[in-house]
């Protein structure tokens, strides 16, 4: 904490300039490590329970590859555009940064829309969170990821507002960088949901 204001190093990207920023970025990486453990536990629960369907539908009855692929491509692309936003930030282009962040937001919102539609569709088919152990673990795993994405959308909106108010400062740059780490991480989690939930569910 002591060196928040000094220790400026002009050769670093803006988000790494202050000691406070460097500590926060490292802390967020460590937090992502904890998030890995959190999602690993949800995956473990799902993989232990997903064939225990009781009287309810099975994975093969429910999943449809088309919807899943749309969600996957939306999120993959949003991870890419989020990377472009940081790229623009490091070139000090505020407009480019804002545009790509906005595109990322829209893609994220599109992903959430499709996911909510998918969930509603399942519920209409009688597959609710109370139906079976499989569905409980499915909704909680995929729903936790969805909740993370929704939180990310809210968070990114706050950062866009701060960028519009304050422009580039070491603090806003650090916030953009950290939210980008979060966003890429959610894409990684989705890749495993895509593989271990949907593809596995349709193959087995």
């Amino acid at each position: 904490m002591a060196d928040t204001a000094h220790h400026y190093d002009e050769t670093m990207p803006l988000e790494y300039r202050t000691e406070e920023s460097r500590l926060n970025i490292l802390g967020f990486w460590i937090f992502l490590g904890a998030e890995v453990a959190l999602f690993a536990t949800l995956f473990a629960t799902y993989l232990v329970l997903f064939q225990r369907t009781g009287h309810g539908p099975t994975t093969a009855d429910l999943f449809e590859i088309k919807d899943v692929m749309i969600e996957t491509l939306l999120l993959l692309t949003s991870s890419f555009t989020c990377g472009l936003a940081v790229f623009e930030m490091r070139r000090r282009r505020l407009t480019g940064l804002l545009v790509w962040l906005l595109v990322t937001l829209l893609l994220g919102a599109g992903f959430i829309t499709f996911e909510v539609r998918e969930f509603i569709h399942y519920v209409h088919e009688g597959a609710t969170i109370q139906t079976s152990a499989f569905l409980s673990s499915f909704f909680v795993l995929v729903g936790t990821h969805g909740a993370h994405v929704s939180l990310g959308i809210g968070w990114m909106t706050l950062i866009i507002i701060q960028l519009l108010q304050r422009g580039f400062t070491p603090r806003t740059a650090r916030k953009v960088f950290i939210v980008s780490l979060y966003w890429h991480f959610l894409d990684v989690v989705w890749i495993f949901i895509f593989t271990l939930v949907y593809l596995t569910g349709m193959v087995m």
Binding site: Y16, R22, W29, A37, A40
Partner: peptide, 22 residues
């Protein structure tokens, strides 16, 4: 960054934990 090593070890260890848990 100057914490790159820590970040990498952190992710590798979290991978170990994920494998153990799952």
């Amino acid at each position: 960054s100057d914490s790159g090593k820590i970040q990498t070890i952190n992710m590798a260890y979290s991978f170990f934990i994920a494998i153990v848990v799952v």
